[in-house]
Design a protein around this nucleic acid. Structure first.
Length: 198
DNA sequence: TCACTGATCGTCT
DNA sequence: GACGATCAGTGAG
């Protein structure tokens, strides 16, 4: 069975606190082929006034969900090919969010493999583009409320989070030195170079 | 395991 | 008209 859904009130308002809170939390997505669920093991915080954040230059049609209430999906196309899944944070009017970078499968591994042909194990979900592809998250989900019982939602951890590690964020050219990446230490489903996962 | 490279296109300058 | 919050493939150590 699937764990109990999270309410908005369960989510910390502060972006960094939310990024840490989300480690261990379950993402559930009901797809036409069946339900998929995964346990978040790696996140990155994108703060208000963060030069690396899409919200930095103010609201636009694309990043609007980052300025809405917390607990909404912000999905955008990166490098012309990959969709990246974020969860909005902070109070309305403040642009910030948490990028979901990696997760471990809980339900629907078969469905994930169908969406990532030829891939198995960590390769299924250990990267933001891979995770969105495996879980069927795309532009249609941008702006979706993850706390209203819809097809895409958050739920309590299936297993409590272990010790949480911290590192610089991955793939940035701006504000690359800030330690705003969070992950579960020792987890085998993490993305990024080994040196960053200690 | 790490470093480098090409692929590809919506968004904002 | 650039520029990416990436990935897969290749080649070297």
């Amino acid at each position: 069975m699937t764990p109990r859904a999270l309410k908005r009130g369960d989510l910390p308002v502060d972006t960094v606190t939310l990024a840490r809170f989300l480690i261990g939390v379950t993402i559930i997505h009901e797809l036409p082929e069946g339900i998929v669920a995964a346990r978040i093991v790696e996140t990155e915080a994108y703060l208000p006034d963060d030069p690396a954040s899409h919200s930095h230059r103010g609201p636009t049609a694309r990043n609007a969900p980052m300025f809405g209430r917390r607990g909404h999906a912000y999905v955008y196309l990166n490098y012309g090919m990959y969709w990246l899944f974020n969860i909005s944070s902070e109070e309305p009017g403040i642009g910030a969010g948490v990028l979901i970078r990696a997760a471990e499968p809980v339900l629907g591994v078969e469905t994930m493999m169908l969406r990532r042909p030829g891939k198995t194990g960590p390769d299924l979900l250990n990267g933001p583009g891979k995770l969105a592809a495996a879980m069927g998250i795309g532009p249609a989900q941008s702006g979706a409320d993850l706390c209203d019982g819809g097809p895409l939602r958050l739920a309590r951890p299936t297993r409590a989070a272990g010790e949480i590690g911290m590192s610089t964020r991955i793939g940035l050219t701006k504000a690359a030195e800030a330690e705003l990446r969070f992950f579960e230490r020792g987890n085998t489903w993490l993305s990024g170079p080994k040196a960053l996962n200690r």
